[in-house]
Simulated scan of single mutants.
Amino acid sequence: MLAALQLAIVAGLLVWRAGDDGAARPQRVASPSARAARDAPAPTAHRFDRARAMRLVRLQLAAGQRPAGSPQLRAVAERLRALLPAGRFEDVPDHPGLRNVVGEIPGTAPAVVLGAHYDTEYHPPGFVGANDAAAAVATVIEVSRTLRRTARPAGAPAIRFVLFDGEEEPKPTDDFYRDALRGSKAYVTAHPGETRAMVLLDYIGNRGVQLPREGSSDPGVWRRVRAAAAQVGVAPVFPDGDEVSITDDHAPFLRAGVPAVDLIDWSYRYKDTVNDTYNKLAPASVDAVGETVVELLRTWR
């Protein structure tokens, strides 16, 4: 699904943390299996409706496998567009049948983009992508609903909600950036200078979710994310450390000079398998990430 430099690790996940002298040191955190046995902490804020978000996950999964350009994905896209503020489609040039779904809450320019991809892998047969990335799509939509009725500071930036088509590669590839990320590359090309920062959601719904800083993510935006998480009581979900760099839909924004972060639990054990199903998700994880993102965007100025 995504290209990444994977580290061989025994009995746990290593993330990298800077010591007092500035040197990077490995920090051991709980193994994926151990973390999967416990839920994310309950947020102290209650703006995000996790039950509604989980219903949106089920809506997507009911359509089955949804590869880019497929009739089932286009049908789902119609439902998603209607749920975003001022929702619209943007075609992906040179890829007939592909289209991003875009919504917006007005504010000052340039906008902050909150994104997720809504297509699934074309293989293996039967792959429905509960965590890759139906949970992220549902979170983006529920965040948009929450922020529409939430007061923000004077001069707050516009917020664009973008569901990217064609994130997954259409065929086996040795260059994921070249052949995949079709919707995010098209969006960046079509909207030069219109984005001040970008937050991408990907694997965020699994039980025991842990979201250290993805290796290529912008440190400044990452500090904002962690501050928002601490404010709503879920700081343990965003540990102080780095994971591997991952080629994902934030990469075209980074290459265009836009500060961007990718919230993704790369240790998710069911990624790219037919076992990435609804029962692998935890409402508590979706809630923790949803409340964090609402707080992040609610207070952005």
Rank of each mutant, 00 (worst) to 15 (best):
T292W: 07
A197H: 06
A134F: 08
V15W: 01
R152A: 08
T195S: 09
P71S: 06
N206F: 00
D249T: 04
T173F: 11
E168V: 07
G220R: 14
F48P: 11
A23F: 08
A235N: 00
Y278S: 13
A8T: 13
G257S: 05
K280G: 04
F48L: 11
I246Y: 10
R226F: 07
M198Q: 13
A227P: 03
L80K: 02
F238K: 05
S245G: 15
L73W: 04
T146W: 06
D21N: 08
V137C: 11
G97S: 10
D49T: 02
T273H: 04
P93F: 03
V137Q: 05
G215F: 08
H191M: 07
I105M: 02
R66H: 08
K185W: 09
S31L: 13
L2C: 08
T277P: 04
R81C: 08
P236H: 04
R301H: 12
T189H: 10
T108V: 06
P259L: 01
A62H: 11
G87D: 03
A77I: 10
V57C: 07
Y122K: 04
Q65S: 11
A154D: 15
R152E: 09
A37C: 02
P157C: 06
P106W: 04
V15I: 15
M198F: 15
R38M: 02
H123W: 10
D240T: 10
W222P: 15
P96W: 12
A133Q: 04
R152P: 12
E90T: 10
V76Q: 15
R74C: 06
V225K: 00
L61P: 12
G233Q: 00
L200Y: 12
S70P: 09
P26N: 04
M198N: 06
D242W: 01
V140Q: 12
Y203Q: 03
A8S: 10
A260I: 05
R66V: 07
G12K: 08
A251W: 09
P219Q: 03
L181D: 05
A288G: 05
D39Y: 01
T173C: 13
A36Y: 01
V140K: 13
L98T: 01
K171S: 14
E168W: 01
M54I: 13
L114T: 04
R207M: 01
A40W: 02
Y203L: 15
Q6N: 13
G166D: 07
A62D: 13
L163P: 06
A18H: 09
D262N: 15
V92I: 13
D165F: 05
G208A: 02
P41A: 02
V221T: 15
V225N: 00
A158W: 01
A180Q: 04
V113R: 03
Q210A: 15
D242T: 14
A151R: 12
I246K: 13
P157T: 07
Q210N: 02
D179E: 15
P236W: 06
H46N: 14
V244C: 09
A75K: 09
A30R: 03
T139P: 09
H250A: 11
P283R: 03
R213E: 13
A37F: 00
D20V: 00
A30Y: 00
Y270D: 12
R79Y: 05
P283H: 03
A130V: 13
H117K: 05
L147P: 11
T277A: 12
A180W: 11
